[in-house]
């Protein structure tokens, strides 16, 4: 008669998803290693990796510091097609500070050639034209800059001064009033004095 032999079978393991369990951290020193990371340093120092700045950013920083090398870096930015419009615009400012107004206009108009609605280029060009005493052109560029960015208060103030020079007192009053509406209260005193004088002219 056949004998039924019972094979030693271990109960099958439960298959299915496995939960992630928190394991006890092994003590490295038990394995003959130094436990270097057991105590994290009290003050962690974040070291940023060196990032390659663009020529434009370097120029901007040098310009902020009033360093003459800024001009060279703006030109390098243009050469490398980095923020060409802004670089031309800022070169225009540098040239105006050097009282080279013709070159300043050259750079600012180059900026406008690339972006005809570049706010800063129009505003700065208007400033250069007012320095030159060309008030009709200054007025036009202030007006264009206002149409691009109507919230920038300085455009209204400078437009007001140009309108005074053009003896358009009522329009100047309007521009100075708009400047007051858009600017912080701390800047109102001079503008208010100017308004008083203007009103006596206009009447």
């Amino acid at each position: 008669m056949a004998r039924i032999v019972k094979l030693p079978v271990s109960p099958p393991k439960k298959l299915g998803p496995k939960k992630a369990k928190r394991r006890r951290k092994p003590n490295l020193e038990d394995y003959g290693q130094l436990n270097l990371f057991a105590q994290p340093p009290k003050e962690g120092k974040v070291v940023s990796m060196h990032q390659q700045e663009s020529f434009f950013e370097q120029a901007l920083q040098l310009d902020d510091e009033g360093k003459p090398e800024a001009e060279k870096y703006y030109l390098l930015a243009i050469e490398n097609k980095q923020r060409e419009v802004d670089a031309y615009c800022n070169l225009g400012i540098i040239k105006s500070q050097q009282e080279d107004l013709a070159e300043s206009i050259n750079y600012l108009t180059k900026a406008l050639e690339l972006n005809p609605r570049h706010f800063e280029a129009h505003y700065n060009l208007a400033n250069v034209y007012s320095d030159m005493g060309n008030f009709p052109l200054a007025k036009t560029h202030y007006e264009v800059s206002i149409s691009i960015d109507p919230d920038f208060p300085d455009s209204y103030y400078n437009l007001g001064l140009v309108l005074i020079s053009l003896k358009q007192y009522e329009r100047a009053i309007k521009a100075i009033n708009t400047y007051i509406e858009h600017s912080p209260e701390s800047d109102h005193s001079v503008a208010s004095e100017l308004l008083k004088t203007l009103k006596s002219f206009a009447l």
Partner: peptide, 24 residues
């Protein structure tokens, strides 16, 4: 008078490099 007046004007504004959209 105009020269003296324009001396009081607000300064130039530097372009700080906006987005590519700003660059046209």
């Amino acid at each position: 008078a105009s020269k003296l007046l324009m001396k009081a004007k607000k300064p130039m504004k530097r372009a700080k490099g906006g987005t590519e959209f700003d660059q046209g």
